Simulated scan of single mutants.
Amino acid sequence: MICLLAASVVVPLSVPAITLRWSHSVEKIVWEEDWADTPAGLTITASRVRGSGAGMEPALDAHWVNGAWTWVPRLAPLREVVLRRSGATADWSVCLQGACQPMSVFVGPEADPVTLTSCAGAPRGDAAEHR
C-alpha cells in the first residue's frame, strides 16, 4: 500500500499503485508516471508525456499510445520519491484507480516536501485517512 508523508502526517492511500500527474512548468505539457508498491520498493511501471520540449523528451523506446509518448523507464525500485511543491506551478495530481485529485486534497496546499513511500516503511505519526 502506498502512503504520502508530509511532516508528521502519514496519509495511507489504500491502493498498491498510483499515477502522479503534473504539467511541465515551462512547456505546460502533461506528464504522468505510474508507480507501484512492490516487495523491492516503489517501482515506476510507465511514463507518459503528451509532447516534448525543455527537458522532457520521451525515451528512445517510447511509443505513441492514446495521445501520449509512453514507455517504461529503466529505474531501480526506490524506497521513496520526494515531491516538491514550489507554488509557481499547478499542484501535483494523485490518481487512484483512474480518479485524479490535486495533492492538496490529501496533504494540504502548504505541505512541502511530500514523500511517496510504501506504508510498510512509513514512520508512525499522525495518521490521516483520505476522505
Rank of each mutant, 00 (worst) to 15 (best):
R48I: 03
W92Y: 13
V107I: 12
C100S: 15
W69N: 08
D34H: 13
V105A: 09
L75D: 01
A68V: 01
D126H: 15
A76N: 12
V82N: 13
E80Q: 14
T38W: 01
I44W: 00
T70G: 09
P113G: 08
S47G: 05
C95L: 03
L83N: 05
P73C: 13
W69F: 07
R79L: 13
T117E: 03
W71E: 03
R48W: 00
R74S: 15
S93V: 02
A40C: 03
P113K: 02
L75G: 05
S118A: 12
T45M: 05
G108F: 08
L60T: 11
A127S: 11
E80P: 01
W35L: 11
P58V: 08
L116G: 00
L116T: 00
A62C: 09
A99M: 03
A54E: 11
M56D: 07
P77F: 04
T89P: 09
P73R: 08
E80R: 04
R48D: 02
P113R: 03
P109L: 10
L78D: 04
E32L: 07
T45D: 06
A120N: 10
P39Q: 07
G98A: 03
D61S: 06
R79F: 07
S52D: 09
A36S: 15
R124D: 12
A54V: 10
T43N: 03
S118C: 06
G87P: 12
P102T: 09
G98W: 00
V105N: 01
A40P: 00
T43G: 06
G53I: 07
A59W: 05
E110C: 09
A40M: 11
G55Q: 08
W64I: 14
G108L: 12
R79Y: 10
V105Y: 01
L83C: 01
T89K: 11
E110K: 15
L96K: 03
W35C: 09
A46W: 02
R85V: 14
